[in-house]
Design a binder for these strands. Sequence first.
DNA 1: CGAACTTGCCAC
DNA 2: AAACGTGGCAAGTTCG
Length: 449
Amino acid sequence: MDEVSVERVAPYAAADAAITFRLVGYLRPKLEALDLMTLYNDLEMPLIPVISAIERKGVVLDTTYLRDLSTKLNGMLSQLEEDIYAVSGQGKFNINSPKQLNDILFDKLKLPTEGLKKTTHGYSTDANVLDSLSGQHIVVDKILEYREVNKLKGTYVDTLPELINPHTGRVHTSYNQAGAATGRLSSSNPNLQNIPIRTELGREVRRAFVAAEGNKLLSVDYSQVELRILAHISQDKTLLEAFSQGQDIHAATAAAVNGIPVEEVTKEQRNFAKRVNFGLIYGMGAFRLARDSKLTLAEAQAFIRTYFERLPGVEKYLDETKQAARKGPIKTLFGRQREFAILRNASEGSNKVAIQGEERVAINMPIQGTAADIMKQAMLNLYHELEKSSLKGRMILQVHDELVLEVPEAEVKETSAMVVRVMEGAYQLDAPLRANANVGDNWRDMSSV
DNA sequence: CGAACTTGCCAC
DNA sequence: AAACGTGGCAAGTTCG
Ligand SMILES: Nc1nc2c(ncn2[C@H]2C[C@H](O)[C@@H](COP(=O)(O)OP(=O)(O)OP(=O)(O)O)O2)c(=O)[nH]1
Ligand SMILES: [Mn+2]
Ligand SMILES: [Mn+2]
């Protein structure tokens, strides 16, 4: 675009606007009919300049650090490749090719394929399958490690520095405000909503996101956000009571899964318990739970039974939502809505798999969507509070229920208090919103404010 | 040859 | 192949 003269671009740009404008006559009556004008006028429209400001501000990367990290990963990859070829004893092959990997693992090395997950062509070699084959052959663990390192290097370490804008010296993501079906934002070019955090090596990538000179990164993240929204919407007595007592449900689930006291739950265990909590709520089965955890199938079945026995209000809400989705659109607390065509048209002969699949989509939408609504409201409120104050800190990233700001060192305390207050006050829930603030020189090494 | 699809995996 | 959901990206393979 910047290679074409203004004279030639002008008519194109004008047509862009003029033709889009014609959509108003078609779309506005629809918004009015669906009662969406308030959401549109008071939230989505005013949020546009907020998102635009975040994109234009961008974030600083420690490129020196990333270069060193790349070198380190290169060394690891060379060693892993060498090891993989040696122990598989079949000479060189492309480890990244599922086809060739299938051939090596299941044909040449004769690893057991009984009950193994299949893909369109051969047997799956995803991390879960390889985990189950770990111990059968030493190459399996090597491949898993190779996958992790190769992913980090290819997707983040070598790619992010290329996307630094030479004019600003910062990386500028692009947020899609109207892409996700639930109302969430998404991020691309690069996606800054999926920066690694789970593994030690992955956190090395996060370390490369730094504050500009004289500043700190301030990260504020909602506590157990979708669980609180679920408690509010379902009015489940147990869940509401738990939150009123300040309980940590993720930690409690971690304790139950591992059969340990809540005080002994590690970060990793709590993190895994998140997936259990949201997985079960949104329809995970015993097979998957058993496979992902260390539980047997019978234990997983019992766990799920007990889980919902303790949360009868949640179970009732989930059932009611599945039924409601057959009669009309499902809505978030802000009125955002989504239709479920398969459920609307469900009849005797309908595809059961498709119906159950869409039921899971339907029960997720109002919860995830409400979380997205709330975060959008918080971003809008915070933007204006920051503007009208004399504080210089500004938002630089949104990661669904987390805001990252770049803040002058001297203003961290005051800004943090403001962000927490605005985020917690964005919407009144019966399980009140809570947000945790952390600060640091980079996005990895942070401590509680 | 590039587009479209597949497989796998990172985050919330 | 599984009864968590929402995304985006890289590499390989197949399609046209
Ligand atoms: N369905 C589903 N939703 C998830 C998953 N992971 C995260 N989410 C959604 C629900 C969470 O409330 C929300 C924000 O993710 P967080 O990692 O911040 O977790 P959460 O806020 O629940 O706990 P926290 O107190 O921040 O550690 O994103 C998942 O594995 N499955
Ligand atoms: Mn959170
Ligand atoms: Mn979060």
